[in-house]
Design a protein around this nucleic acid. Structure first.
Lengths: 228, 228
DNA sequence: GTCTATATGTTGATAGAC
DNA sequence: GTCTATCAACATATAGAC
Protein backbone atom coordinates (compact mmCIF):
# COMPACT_ATOMS: atom_id res chain seq x y z
CA UNK A 1 0.00 0.00 0.00
CA UNK A 2 1.23 3.45 -0.69
CA UNK A 3 2.12 4.79 2.70
CA UNK A 4 2.71 8.34 1.50
CA UNK A 5 -0.16 10.67 2.02
CA UNK A 6 1.70 13.72 3.35
CA UNK A 7 3.18 16.09 0.76
CA UNK A 8 6.27 14.51 -0.66
CA UNK A 9 8.58 17.41 -0.12
CA UNK A 10 8.28 20.93 1.27
CA UNK A 11 8.45 22.12 -2.31
CA UNK A 12 7.61 25.55 -3.62
CA UNK A 13 4.42 24.55 -5.30
CA UNK A 14 2.72 23.62 -2.01
CA UNK A 15 -0.88 24.10 -2.96
CA UNK A 16 -2.36 27.45 -1.83
CA UNK A 17 -4.50 26.14 1.01
CA UNK A 18 -5.26 29.54 2.40
CA UNK A 19 -6.43 30.82 -0.95
CA UNK A 20 -8.25 33.86 0.28
CA UNK A 21 -10.39 32.46 3.01
CA UNK A 22 -9.61 35.31 5.34
CA UNK A 23 -10.72 37.89 2.81
CA UNK A 24 -13.85 35.94 1.94
CA UNK A 25 -14.72 35.74 5.62
CA UNK A 26 -14.33 39.48 6.00
CA UNK A 27 -16.46 40.09 2.91
CA UNK A 28 -19.25 37.85 4.16
CA UNK A 29 -19.05 39.33 7.66
CA UNK A 30 -19.28 42.82 6.22
CA UNK A 31 -22.40 42.03 4.30
CA UNK A 32 -24.19 39.97 6.94
CA UNK A 33 -23.30 42.07 9.98
CA UNK A 34 -24.48 45.09 8.02
CA UNK A 35 -27.76 43.48 7.00
CA UNK A 36 -28.72 41.68 10.16
CA UNK A 37 -26.49 42.98 12.92
CA UNK A 38 -23.96 41.20 15.04
CA UNK A 39 -26.32 39.22 17.22
CA UNK A 40 -28.61 38.57 14.29
CA UNK A 41 -25.90 36.83 12.30
CA UNK A 42 -24.80 33.32 13.20
CA UNK A 43 -21.27 32.20 12.56
CA UNK A 44 -22.77 29.27 10.72
CA UNK A 45 -24.61 31.41 8.19
CA UNK A 46 -21.61 33.67 7.86
CA UNK A 47 -19.05 30.96 7.19
CA UNK A 48 -21.41 29.21 4.82
CA UNK A 49 -21.84 32.42 2.86
CA UNK A 50 -18.07 32.68 2.74
CA UNK A 51 -17.83 29.12 1.42
CA UNK A 52 -15.86 27.86 4.38
CA UNK A 53 -16.34 26.45 7.85
CA UNK A 54 -16.79 27.71 11.38
CA UNK A 55 -13.42 26.43 12.42
CA UNK A 56 -11.70 28.37 9.65
CA UNK A 57 -13.22 31.52 11.11
CA UNK A 58 -11.90 30.62 14.52
CA UNK A 59 -8.50 29.81 13.10
CA UNK A 60 -8.20 33.22 11.44
CA UNK A 61 -9.93 35.46 13.96
CA UNK A 62 -10.24 33.57 17.22
CA UNK A 63 -13.82 34.55 17.96
CA UNK A 64 -16.91 36.09 16.50
CA UNK A 65 -16.23 39.34 18.32
CA UNK A 66 -12.74 39.60 16.89
CA UNK A 67 -14.18 39.01 13.45
CA UNK A 68 -16.50 41.97 13.94
CA UNK A 69 -13.62 44.07 15.08
CA UNK A 70 -11.52 43.13 12.06
CA UNK A 71 -14.46 43.75 9.75
CA UNK A 72 -15.06 47.25 11.03
CA UNK A 73 -11.40 48.09 11.21
CA UNK A 74 -10.64 47.07 7.64
CA UNK A 75 -12.96 49.70 6.19
CA UNK A 76 -13.09 52.41 8.79
CA UNK A 77 -9.36 52.88 9.32
CA UNK A 78 -8.49 53.76 5.68
CA UNK A 79 -11.57 55.95 5.45
CA UNK A 80 -10.50 57.96 8.46
CA UNK A 81 -6.96 58.17 7.15
CA UNK A 82 -8.39 59.67 3.99
CA UNK A 83 -10.38 62.18 6.02
CA UNK A 84 -7.25 63.31 7.82
CA UNK A 85 -5.32 63.58 4.55
CA UNK A 86 -7.96 65.86 3.14
CA UNK A 87 -8.03 67.94 6.29
CA UNK A 88 -4.23 68.24 6.26
CA UNK A 89 -4.22 69.25 2.61
CA UNK A 90 -6.92 71.86 3.15
CA UNK A 91 -5.14 73.33 6.15
CA UNK A 92 -1.86 73.53 4.25
CA UNK A 93 -3.63 75.27 1.37
CA UNK A 94 -5.32 77.73 3.72
CA UNK A 95 -1.95 78.68 5.25
CA UNK A 96 -3.28 79.39 8.73
CA UNK A 97 -6.63 80.87 7.78
CA UNK A 98 -9.71 79.11 9.18
CA UNK A 99 -11.32 76.66 6.78
CA UNK A 100 -14.87 77.08 5.59
CA UNK A 101 -17.57 74.90 7.11
CA UNK A 102 -18.30 73.42 3.68
CA UNK A 103 -14.69 72.42 3.23
CA UNK A 104 -14.72 70.62 6.55
CA UNK A 105 -18.02 68.89 5.90
CA UNK A 106 -16.73 67.83 2.52
CA UNK A 107 -13.49 66.47 3.92
CA UNK A 108 -15.50 64.39 6.36
CA UNK A 109 -18.21 63.14 4.00
CA UNK A 110 -16.50 62.73 0.64
CA UNK A 111 -14.40 59.67 1.53
CA UNK A 112 -17.58 57.88 2.54
CA UNK A 113 -19.43 58.59 -0.68
CA UNK A 114 -16.38 57.87 -2.81
CA UNK A 115 -15.91 54.46 -1.31
CA UNK A 116 -19.53 53.79 -2.04
CA UNK A 117 -19.16 54.83 -5.65
CA UNK A 118 -16.05 52.65 -6.00
CA UNK A 119 -17.73 49.55 -4.70
CA UNK A 120 -21.11 50.14 -6.25
CA UNK A 121 -23.02 46.92 -6.45
CA UNK A 122 -20.30 44.91 -4.82
CA UNK A 123 -20.70 43.18 -1.53
CA UNK A 124 -18.50 45.57 0.31
CA UNK A 125 -20.04 48.78 1.49
CA UNK A 126 -18.27 50.72 4.18
CA UNK A 127 -21.28 52.74 4.88
CA UNK A 128 -23.34 50.00 6.38
CA UNK A 129 -20.35 48.76 8.27
CA UNK A 130 -19.68 52.13 9.82
CA UNK A 131 -23.34 52.50 10.68
CA UNK A 132 -23.17 49.31 12.68
CA UNK A 133 -20.77 51.01 15.06
CA UNK A 134 -23.82 52.86 16.27
CA UNK A 135 -26.26 50.03 16.75
CA UNK A 136 -24.24 47.01 17.74
CA UNK A 137 -23.75 46.29 21.45
CA UNK A 138 -21.82 49.15 23.05
CA UNK A 139 -19.51 46.87 25.02
CA UNK A 140 -18.26 45.56 21.70
CA UNK A 141 -17.95 48.67 19.63
CA UNK A 142 -17.56 51.67 21.87
CA UNK A 143 -13.89 51.04 22.59
CA UNK A 144 -13.34 50.51 18.89
CA UNK A 145 -15.22 53.68 18.11
CA UNK A 146 -12.99 55.70 20.40
CA UNK A 147 -9.92 54.06 19.00
CA UNK A 148 -10.84 54.55 15.35
CA UNK A 149 -12.51 57.93 15.59
CA UNK A 150 -10.71 59.63 18.44
CA UNK A 151 -8.17 61.52 16.41
CA UNK A 152 -10.53 62.30 13.55
CA UNK A 153 -13.12 63.76 15.91
CA UNK A 154 -10.54 65.84 17.72
CA UNK A 155 -8.98 67.23 14.57
CA UNK A 156 -12.28 68.10 12.92
CA UNK A 157 -13.69 69.64 16.08
CA UNK A 158 -10.61 71.85 16.40
CA UNK A 159 -10.94 72.93 12.80
CA UNK A 160 -14.66 73.60 13.29
CA UNK A 161 -13.92 75.70 16.35
CA UNK A 162 -11.67 77.89 14.20
CA UNK A 163 -14.30 78.10 11.47
CA UNK A 164 -17.05 79.04 13.95
CA UNK A 165 -15.32 81.01 16.72
CA UNK A 166 -18.58 82.43 18.06
CA UNK A 167 -19.94 78.98 18.86
CA UNK A 168 -19.29 77.50 22.31
CA UNK A 169 -17.32 74.30 22.54
CA UNK A 170 -20.25 72.39 24.05
CA UNK A 171 -22.60 73.52 21.34
CA UNK A 172 -20.06 72.63 18.70
CA UNK A 173 -19.61 69.15 20.14
CA UNK A 174 -23.35 68.64 20.02
CA UNK A 175 -23.64 69.88 16.47
CA UNK A 176 -20.82 67.63 15.38
CA UNK A 177 -22.66 64.66 16.87
CA UNK A 178 -25.92 65.72 15.26
CA UNK A 179 -24.08 65.64 11.96
CA UNK A 180 -22.69 62.20 12.63
CA UNK A 181 -26.25 61.07 13.36
CA UNK A 182 -27.51 62.31 9.99
CA UNK A 183 -24.66 60.56 8.28
CA UNK A 184 -25.19 57.27 10.05
CA UNK A 185 -28.88 57.39 9.23
CA UNK A 186 -28.12 57.84 5.55
CA UNK A 187 -25.45 55.15 5.63
CA UNK A 188 -27.65 52.54 7.17
CA UNK A 189 -30.12 52.80 4.32
CA UNK A 190 -32.90 54.55 6.20
CA UNK A 191 -33.49 57.02 3.40
CA UNK A 192 -34.77 54.28 1.13
CA UNK A 193 -36.83 52.78 3.94
CA UNK A 194 -38.50 56.02 4.98
CA UNK A 195 -42.31 55.95 5.11
CA UNK A 196 -42.77 58.53 2.38
CA UNK A 197 -40.09 57.04 0.12
CA UNK A 198 -41.81 53.69 -0.29
CA UNK A 199 -42.30 52.63 -3.85
CA UNK A 200 -40.41 55.56 -5.30
CA UNK A 201 -37.16 55.35 -7.19
CA UNK A 202 -34.30 55.96 -4.77
CA UNK A 203 -32.52 59.24 -5.33
CA UNK A 204 -29.05 59.03 -6.91
CA UNK A 205 -26.15 58.98 -4.50
CA UNK A 206 -24.73 62.31 -5.52
CA UNK A 207 -28.06 64.03 -4.97
CA UNK A 208 -28.16 62.69 -1.43
CA UNK A 209 -24.51 63.56 -0.95
CA UNK A 210 -24.90 67.20 -1.93
CA UNK A 211 -28.14 67.63 -0.04
CA UNK A 212 -26.40 66.29 3.04
CA UNK A 213 -23.49 68.70 2.66
CA UNK A 214 -25.90 71.64 2.43
CA UNK A 215 -27.97 70.47 5.38
CA UNK A 216 -25.00 69.87 7.65
CA UNK A 217 -23.20 73.07 6.71
CA UNK A 218 -26.30 75.12 7.44
CA UNK A 219 -26.95 73.29 10.70
CA UNK A 220 -23.39 73.75 11.91
CA UNK A 221 -23.62 77.46 11.15
CA UNK A 222 -26.93 77.94 12.97
CA UNK A 223 -27.08 81.16 14.99
CA UNK A 224 -26.34 80.64 18.66
CA UNK A 225 -29.38 80.41 20.92
CA UNK A 226 -29.88 82.72 23.87
CA UNK A 227 -28.73 80.93 27.04
CA UNK A 228 -32.11 81.76 28.64
CA UNK B 1 -64.43 13.70 48.00
CA UNK B 2 -65.01 17.26 47.31
CA UNK B 3 -65.58 17.36 43.60
CA UNK B 4 -65.40 21.14 43.40
CA UNK B 5 -62.09 22.47 42.19
CA UNK B 6 -63.44 25.13 39.91
CA UNK B 7 -64.34 28.48 41.49
CA UNK B 8 -67.49 28.09 43.50
CA UNK B 9 -69.36 30.89 41.89
CA UNK B 10 -68.52 33.50 39.28
CA UNK B 11 -68.23 35.92 42.16
CA UNK B 12 -66.85 39.43 42.04
CA UNK B 13 -63.82 38.82 44.20
CA UNK B 14 -62.16 36.30 41.84
CA UNK B 15 -58.53 36.71 42.81
CA UNK B 16 -56.50 39.02 40.54
CA UNK B 17 -54.25 36.40 38.95
CA UNK B 18 -53.20 38.66 36.13
CA UNK B 19 -52.05 41.37 38.52
CA UNK B 20 -50.09 43.47 36.08
CA UNK B 21 -47.93 40.90 34.41
CA UNK B 22 -48.63 42.28 30.99
CA UNK B 23 -47.48 45.74 31.98
CA UNK B 24 -44.41 44.40 33.71
CA UNK B 25 -43.50 42.45 30.61
CA UNK B 26 -43.80 45.54 28.47
CA UNK B 27 -41.67 47.54 30.92
CA UNK B 28 -38.93 44.93 30.94
CA UNK B 29 -39.08 44.55 27.17
CA UNK B 30 -38.79 48.29 26.74
CA UNK B 31 -35.68 48.47 28.86
CA UNK B 32 -33.92 45.38 27.55
CA UNK B 33 -34.75 45.75 23.87
CA UNK B 34 -33.52 49.33 24.14
CA UNK B 35 -30.29 48.37 25.85
CA UNK B 36 -29.35 45.26 23.96
CA UNK B 37 -31.55 45.11 20.90
CA UNK B 38 -34.10 42.55 19.85
CA UNK B 39 -31.76 39.73 18.92
CA UNK B 40 -29.49 40.54 21.83
CA UNK B 41 -32.24 40.02 24.39
CA UNK B 42 -33.39 36.52 25.27
CA UNK B 43 -36.94 35.90 26.29
CA UNK B 44 -35.55 34.22 29.37
CA UNK B 45 -33.65 37.25 30.58
CA UNK B 46 -36.60 39.45 29.74
CA UNK B 47 -39.23 37.46 31.60
CA UNK B 48 -36.92 37.04 34.57
CA UNK B 49 -36.45 40.79 34.73
CA UNK B 50 -40.22 41.12 34.65
CA UNK B 51 -40.52 38.65 37.53
CA UNK B 52 -42.52 36.16 35.52
CA UNK B 53 -42.06 33.21 33.19
CA UNK B 54 -41.55 32.61 29.52
CA UNK B 55 -44.95 31.01 29.17
CA UNK B 56 -46.63 34.09 30.60
CA UNK B 57 -45.04 36.11 27.82
CA UNK B 58 -46.34 33.66 25.25
CA UNK B 59 -49.76 33.71 26.82
CA UNK B 60 -50.02 37.49 26.63
CA UNK B 61 -48.24 38.21 23.38
CA UNK B 62 -47.93 34.97 21.44
CA UNK B 63 -44.36 35.44 20.34
CA UNK B 64 -41.23 37.46 20.94
CA UNK B 65 -41.85 39.44 17.77
CA UNK B 66 -45.34 40.41 18.85
CA UNK B 67 -43.92 41.52 22.18
CA UNK B 68 -41.54 43.84 20.35
CA UNK B 69 -44.39 45.19 18.30
CA UNK B 70 -46.51 45.86 21.37
CA UNK B 71 -43.58 47.46 23.14
CA UNK B 72 -42.89 49.90 20.34
CA UNK B 73 -46.53 50.62 19.73
CA UNK B 74 -47.31 51.45 23.35
CA UNK B 75 -44.93 54.43 23.39
CA UNK B 76 -44.75 55.55 19.80
CA UNK B 77 -48.47 55.78 19.08
CA UNK B 78 -49.29 58.31 21.86
CA UNK B 79 -46.19 60.30 21.04
CA UNK B 80 -47.20 60.62 17.43
CA UNK B 81 -50.74 61.52 18.45
CA UNK B 82 -49.26 64.30 20.52
CA UNK B 83 -47.22 65.51 17.55
CA UNK B 84 -50.34 65.69 15.41
CA UNK B 85 -52.25 67.53 18.12
CA UNK B 86 -49.56 70.17 18.27
CA UNK B 87 -49.47 70.47 14.53
CA UNK B 88 -53.25 70.82 14.38
CA UNK B 89 -53.24 73.45 17.09
CA UNK B 90 -50.49 75.43 15.40
CA UNK B 91 -52.25 75.30 12.04
CA UNK B 92 -55.52 76.46 13.58
CA UNK B 93 -53.72 79.33 15.28
CA UNK B 94 -52.00 80.32 12.05
CA UNK B 95 -55.34 80.49 10.24
CA UNK B 96 -54.02 79.39 6.86
CA UNK B 97 -50.64 81.11 6.99
CA UNK B 98 -47.61 78.83 6.63
CA UNK B 99 -46.03 77.81 9.93
CA UNK B 100 -42.46 78.69 10.79
CA UNK B 101 -39.81 76.01 10.53
CA UNK B 102 -39.08 76.35 14.26
CA UNK B 103 -42.73 75.74 15.10
CA UNK B 104 -42.73 72.57 13.06
CA UNK B 105 -39.46 71.31 14.47
CA UNK B 106 -40.76 72.03 17.96
CA UNK B 107 -44.03 70.21 17.36
CA UNK B 108 -42.07 67.19 16.23
CA UNK B 109 -39.37 67.18 18.92
CA UNK B 110 -41.08 68.45 22.05
CA UNK B 111 -43.24 65.39 22.73
CA UNK B 112 -40.10 63.28 22.71
CA UNK B 113 -38.24 65.41 25.20
CA UNK B 114 -41.27 65.86 27.41
CA UNK B 115 -41.82 62.15 27.71
CA UNK B 116 -38.21 61.86 28.69
CA UNK B 117 -38.55 64.50 31.38
CA UNK B 118 -41.69 62.83 32.71
CA UNK B 119 -40.11 59.44 33.06
CA UNK B 120 -36.69 60.62 34.13
CA UNK B 121 -34.88 57.81 35.87
CA UNK B 122 -37.67 55.36 35.37
CA UNK B 123 -37.34 52.25 33.32
CA UNK B 124 -39.48 53.50 30.54
CA UNK B 125 -37.85 55.73 28.02
CA UNK B 126 -39.56 56.20 24.70
CA UNK B 127 -36.52 57.59 23.16
CA UNK B 128 -34.51 54.43 23.17
CA UNK B 129 -37.52 52.47 22.09
CA UNK B 130 -38.14 54.69 19.11
CA UNK B 131 -34.46 54.54 18.20
CA UNK B 132 -34.72 50.77 17.98
CA UNK B 133 -37.07 51.17 15.06
CA UNK B 134 -33.99 52.15 13.13
CA UNK B 135 -31.61 49.38 14.10
CA UNK B 136 -33.70 46.31 14.67
CA UNK B 137 -34.22 43.89 11.76
CA UNK B 138 -36.10 45.65 8.95
CA UNK B 139 -38.45 42.74 8.32
CA UNK B 140 -39.73 43.23 11.84
CA UNK B 141 -39.97 46.96 12.15
CA UNK B 142 -40.29 48.53 8.75
CA UNK B 143 -43.96 47.71 8.37
CA UNK B 144 -44.54 49.02 11.87
CA UNK B 145 -42.60 52.15 11.04
CA UNK B 146 -44.77 52.86 8.04
CA UNK B 147 -47.88 52.14 10.04
CA UNK B 148 -46.94 54.31 13.01
CA UNK B 149 -45.20 57.13 11.20
CA UNK B 150 -46.97 57.28 7.87
CA UNK B 151 -49.48 59.97 8.72
CA UNK B 152 -47.10 61.99 10.88
CA UNK B 153 -44.49 62.07 8.12
CA UNK B 154 -47.01 63.08 5.53
CA UNK B 155 -48.54 65.85 7.62
CA UNK B 156 -45.23 67.33 8.66
CA UNK B 157 -43.82 67.14 5.16
CA UNK B 158 -46.84 68.97 3.81
CA UNK B 159 -46.49 71.65 6.44
CA UNK B 160 -42.76 71.93 5.71
CA UNK B 161 -43.47 72.32 2.02
CA UNK B 162 -45.67 75.30 2.83
CA UNK B 163 -43.04 76.76 5.14
CA UNK B 164 -40.28 76.34 2.53
CA UNK B 165 -41.98 76.75 -0.84
CA UNK B 166 -38.71 77.32 -2.70
CA UNK B 167 -37.41 73.88 -1.72
CA UNK B 168 -38.09 70.94 -4.03
CA UNK B 169 -40.12 68.05 -2.71
CA UNK B 170 -37.24 65.58 -3.10
CA UNK B 171 -34.85 67.86 -1.25
CA UNK B 172 -37.41 68.39 1.48
CA UNK B 173 -37.93 64.65 1.88
CA UNK B 174 -34.19 64.19 2.25
CA UNK B 175 -33.86 66.99 4.78
CA UNK B 176 -36.72 65.58 6.80
CA UNK B 177 -34.94 62.24 6.92
CA UNK B 178 -31.66 63.88 7.85
CA UNK B 179 -33.48 65.42 10.77
CA UNK B 180 -34.94 62.11 11.83
CA UNK B 181 -31.41 60.72 11.75
CA UNK B 182 -30.11 63.41 14.12
CA UNK B 183 -32.99 62.74 16.45
CA UNK B 184 -32.53 58.99 16.48
CA UNK B 185 -28.84 59.43 17.16
CA UNK B 186 -29.56 61.60 20.17
CA UNK B 187 -32.31 59.28 21.37
CA UNK B 188 -30.14 56.21 21.28
CA UNK B 189 -27.66 57.75 23.67
CA UNK B 190 -24.86 58.32 21.19
CA UNK B 191 -24.19 61.82 22.46
CA UNK B 192 -22.93 60.48 25.77
CA UNK B 193 -20.94 57.77 24.02
CA UNK B 194 -19.20 60.09 21.57
CA UNK B 195 -15.40 59.90 21.50
CA UNK B 196 -14.87 63.47 22.65
CA UNK B 197 -17.58 63.30 25.34
CA UNK B 198 -15.91 60.54 27.32
CA UNK B 199 -15.42 61.32 30.97
CA UNK B 200 -17.25 64.61 30.81
CA UNK B 201 -20.50 65.40 32.55
CA UNK B 202 -23.37 64.83 30.14
CA UNK B 203 -25.09 68.00 29.03
CA UNK B 204 -28.55 68.63 30.50
CA UNK B 205 -31.47 67.48 28.41
CA UNK B 206 -32.83 70.92 27.69
CA UNK B 207 -29.46 72.09 26.40
CA UNK B 208 -29.40 69.22 23.95
CA UNK B 209 -33.03 69.81 23.08
CA UNK B 210 -32.58 73.46 22.18
CA UNK B 211 -29.32 72.87 20.36
CA UNK B 212 -31.11 70.25 18.28
CA UNK B 213 -33.97 72.59 17.44
CA UNK B 214 -31.50 75.24 16.24
CA UNK B 215 -29.46 72.76 14.23
CA UNK B 216 -32.46 71.20 12.51
CA UNK B 217 -34.20 74.48 11.78
CA UNK B 218 -31.07 75.87 10.17
CA UNK B 219 -30.47 72.68 8.22
CA UNK B 220 -34.03 72.58 6.90
CA UNK B 221 -33.72 76.19 5.79
CA UNK B 222 -30.41 75.67 3.98
CA UNK B 223 -30.22 77.52 0.66
CA UNK B 224 -30.98 75.30 -2.31
CA UNK B 225 -27.97 73.96 -4.17
CA UNK B 226 -27.42 74.58 -7.85
CA UNK B 227 -28.62 71.55 -9.80
CA UNK B 228 -25.23 71.46 -11.58
C1' DG C 1 -5.10 25.75 6.77
C1' DT C 2 -9.06 23.41 6.34
C1' DC C 3 -12.07 20.04 7.32
C1' DT C 4 -15.63 16.69 10.11
C1' DA C 5 -17.31 15.56 14.40
C1' DT C 6 -18.53 16.83 18.72
C1' DA C 7 -18.96 19.24 23.27
C1' DT C 8 -21.74 22.28 25.86
C1' DG C 9 -24.85 25.71 26.49
C1' DT C 10 -28.83 28.63 25.01
C1' DT C 11 -32.61 29.76 22.27
C1' DG C 12 -38.00 30.36 21.36
C1' DA C 13 -41.90 27.74 21.92
C1' DT C 14 -45.25 24.25 23.89
C1' DA C 15 -47.80 20.76 27.01
C1' DG C 16 -50.15 20.12 30.90
C1' DA C 17 -50.81 20.60 36.04
C1' DC C 18 -53.02 23.76 39.08
C1' DG D 1 -53.28 33.18 34.21
C1' DT D 2 -49.38 31.32 35.79
C1' DC D 3 -46.36 27.89 36.65
C1' DT D 4 -42.72 23.67 35.88
C1' DA D 5 -40.87 20.57 32.75
C1' DT D 6 -39.55 19.60 28.35
C1' DC D 7 -38.76 20.04 23.28
C1' DA D 8 -36.10 20.45 19.03
C1' DA D 9 -33.23 23.63 16.97
C1' DC D 10 -29.63 26.48 17.16
C1' DA D 11 -25.58 28.94 19.12
C1' DT D 12 -20.17 29.36 19.77
C1' DA D 13 -16.28 26.98 20.41
C1' DT D 14 -12.92 23.06 20.31
C1' DA D 15 -10.44 18.50 19.18
C1' DG D 16 -8.16 16.02 16.05
C1' DA D 17 -7.65 13.92 11.31
C1' DC D 18 -5.53 15.10 7.06
Amino acid sequence: MSQATHPRDGSLEEAPPCRNTKRRLLDAAERLFAERGFEGTSLRALTQAAGTSISAAHYHFGSKEELLRATLERRVAPMNASRLERLDAAERAAAGAPLSVETLVGAYLDPLFEERATHRGSLSDVRFVAARLYSDPPELVSALKRELFGEVSRRFLDALARALPECSRDELGLRFQFGVGCMVHVMSGQIEDAPHAQGRDPLPDDVVHHALVRFLSAGLRAPAGDPR
